[in-house]
Design a protein around this nucleic acid. Structure first.
Lengths: 258, 258
DNA sequence: CAGTGGTCTAGACCACGAG
DNA sequence: TCGTGGTCTAGACCACTGG
């Protein structure tokens, strides 16, 4: 029966050169994305069933299915047979830190027990040129800087600083951070409505500075992994810059290639 | 009409506890995988159309499509609208090195021009316990060790050693390697019928040894990225152990998280 | 048991590539 | 113009979850 009567009629794209054909399921995907962004369904929520969405968007169940399939592949949604489809969340996921790629050299992933987290500082400041560029702000805009240390089995292993746009993270304090149990990104979801969806990391090997060496309890000059992360929300806007120094004497950064 | 008359009738699994239900498209996926492994279709080849495969396996086109979709998602096949579906290959892909995650800090991905490759050595030897364990061989089995240096814009940047099972790589010599243009994995495909499909990397920060420092033209003790890679073929058997040292003064290891 | 996602089919039509 | 993969639909049935 073709796609007549649908949400948008194949997007003819007015005066531009390329016809810019967009499949229906892509448009549905965008609509669902908008609902996620708008907060209609929050992290952890059950979204409407495929049949309901099909009715809402006036398309067949199969088309909704394909849209949801792709969103699930991107880890934005989680399908659970027999129960429904849920909005992905950094909380209550049995994986403690979804974006952390550091693993112990020996032993299981986290037979090490929970990491000890110590927040060293949290202050509001004006963005340096570098931070502003990364977060797509103007130099001098307000940002929040957090620094902390993660320890595994009593050994300080990760020292990291992170910068967040001040406008989106009003009210973030050292107390909030210290008292909160669970992943920091889970806190961002519940307290600030910011969900980190994707991130890019740039890794280098560097020598430990005096201060870094002291905090990680290694000799100055020790080789460390420098991990610079830019994390993005739904709409592809960068919402966090993170600079970490990882000890790799008993851990390694793991990556899968395909 | 259900799935009667198909390749396998839903795999009832004789006496075990779990019923182990396996969808038809998974079975088709396995069958296609077997054909790839057996060499029925070689890297770069056009495989039969969906309709032909559907006829061969006695299933509908949609079922074949779902099987191919997943294989394409794993980068084993490449779909090209209007042309057909091809077996993925490390050669003739516009990306020079598909598994190399090192990028220049400034400039485009490879506006650096082609990397200069210098093979330092290629010798047959007996596997050490460590190498044997990684490659699932017995200690003392024959392996081929290759070492080489990659330079970008005249700067030696990557120093790596790699070990391959001797049985699968008979006839691999320094000459073969030196004369070959293009990615090493492309050579493995054409000369030895070995296609690398997936790999795991473990990354650490280390200090440059005397010999490494000399070959990479940096002071001894310079922090370097240590990248240990295990690469696998179709059947999940490890076929290469690679240990690389990367200079990261002008480059970084890039990773995407989601 | 009802409701959800998951599989499978069959058929129509569209976009793309190449002759 | 033809053959390919890509989209969309409609309907049947299966597997899983929870009341």
């Amino acid at each position: 029966m073709g796609a007549e009567g649908s949400a948008v009629a194949a997007a003819p794209a007015a005066g531009t050169s390329t016809p810019a054909f967009s499949p229906l399921y892509q448009q549905i995907k965008t609509l669902i994305l908008h609902s996620l962004q708008a907060g209609e369904w929050k992290p952890g929520d059950l979204i409407p069933s495929e049949i309901e969405l099909a009715a809402r968007f006036k398309v067949s169940q199969g088309t909704v299915r394909k849209a949801i399939d792709e969103l699930a592949a991107d880890n934005l949604l989680v399908r659970r047979q027999g129960k429904g489809t849920f909005v992905a969340t950094h909380a209550e996921q049995h994986i403690q830190y979804r974006f952390l790629r550091l693993h112990p050299d020996v032993g299981t992933l986290d037979s090490e027990g929970p990491a000890k987290r110590e927040v060293l500082g949290c202050r509001r400041m004006r963005a340096s040129a570098e931070v502003a560029a990364a977060l797509q702000l103007r130099a001098g805009d307000a940002v929040v800087q957090v620094s902390r240390v993660l320890s595994f089995q009593g050994t300080p292993t990760i020292l990291e600083d992170l910068w967040l746009p001040g406008s989106a993270f009003r009210g973030l304090t050292l107390e909030t951070l210290s008292e909160h149990a669970g992943p920091m990104y889970a806190l961002f979801e519940t307290q600030f409505g910011v969900r980190m969806v994707r991130a890019e990391e740039r890794i280098k090997a560097v020598a430990a500075s005096e201060t870094a060496a002291e905090r990680l309890q290694v000799p100055a000059g020790t080789p460390l992994l420098s991990v610079e992360r830019l994390a993005y929300t739904y709409n592809g806007v960068p919402m966090e810059l993170r600079r970490g120094l990882y000890r790799t004497d008993r851990h390694h950064y793991r990556n899968e290639l395909s």
